[in-house]
Nucleic acid binder design. Structure first.
Lengths: 198, 198
DNA sequence: CGTTAGTTTGAGAGGACTCAAAGTCTGTGG
DNA sequence: CCACAGACTTTGAGTCCTCTCAAACTAACG
């Protein structure tokens, strides 16, 4: 079950048997049903969650409405950035959108890896960097003003998610309303139809 | 001149004399006038820029308009994330908004530090993490829908910048127009005035 | 002091929002 | 295997916020 994750890590930087063994010791595999909350508002995010199978959605409440801040699919990591790194209670929720298998590692054990194996910081640096890049990409998405541009950007950069995520969550992820998203999709499918005919 | 930067690094993790010496060897200090471009669209971003004095603005062109993606003031770092890490030409510009003193280190020399001193990855990891957190914070800012909320968030999280940056850049940074920003400021100053009187 | 950059103000247009209702899909129990 | 309930999506009508275009005003710099 952990093979893809360990391969991913080993590909960044070959890891010693000791690190591998500690990783396997620290990583806990949990199976969770659909619509299960891995993290709630007000809780401190003590774990890094790696999706082995399934799909996660991170969101928070704004004026009582759920606003989606991220989707996480297979072999990717989810955590509340502000809560996890600052060690304070956060405002975010993490929910499964499908029945999922998650590998989680506790913050303290991750620190242990960083302290016990200085070379593990190389791996941590690269992974952090990878998520930093994604974060900047989402920033670019949100600065694309029009609702249509956002949707097209989403289609291009998150292929596959459209099939797995209810539109209402995609709408709040893009910062538009469900109705607007529906109208855009309608408009786009019409113009795509036109193209085919001509 | 480099003292604050080296102190900042040393506070993350004490550095050996060798690292310090190499850092001083690799870091190049440049003085640039106001409105100088440190990076242009189409160029590969080969340097990490650390602002020792002055102020930077990063932006890109969207439909011919400048869109501001970041401000960088003293003791902070600026780089085009996608270009620098992916080693490809980028779409961003970095411009000085004030006469500035910049310490820059070349990508290859930074890699050298990471390779020669494995413990330097600890420092790199923490710094990357710091900017990752900031990136997520900006994401939250952009998801605050209304123009007024964005402006208030900006005031709270970027105090001091208002005095140093033309409003037109703050407007594109917030994803609103200059006119809308002006009207919001007008409205807020009026309601602040009211409060004082009552 | 004139010129240019920066900011404010006005009027009108339009995209996205809200509220509301009608379809459509999906999964579970009969 | 069908039927119904609940979740999901589409469509409609009216409103509002923000945008665009334009012009006036103000501050800063040489």
């Amino acid at each position: 079950m952990l093979t893809p994750l360990l391969t991913y890590i080993n590909d960044i930087h070959p890891i010693s048997d000791e690190i591998r063994s500690d990783l396997e010791k620290y990583l806990e595999i949990i199976e969770v049903p659909k619509h299960h909350l891995l993290l709630k508002e007000g809780q401190r995010n003590d774990y890094v969650f790696v999706v082995l199978k399934g799909l996660l959605r991170m969101y928070y409440l704004k004026d009582g409405e759920e606003v989606c801040s991220r989707f996480t699919d297979e072999n990717h990591i989810s955590l509340s950035v502000n809560s996890f790194y600052s060690r304070i209670p956060g405002y975010e929720y993490i929910e499964t959108l499908e029945p999922s298998v998650i590998a989680r590692i506790h913050h303290d054990n991750l620190q242990r890896l960083y302290n016990d194996y200085i070379e593990y910081n190389y791996i941590g640096r690269i992974i952090t960097q990878e998520y930093f890049i994604k974060s900047e990409e989402r920033l670019y998405l949100l600065r694309k003003q029009s609702a249509e541009e956002r949707y097209l950007f989403f289609l291009e950069h998150y292929p596959g998610l459209l099939q797995r995520v209810p539109l209402k969550h995609i709408a709040t992820f893009l910062g538009i309303t469900l109705e607007t998203l529906s109208r855009i999709r309608n408009k786009l499918s019409k113009s795509a139809g036109k193209k085919k005919k001509s």
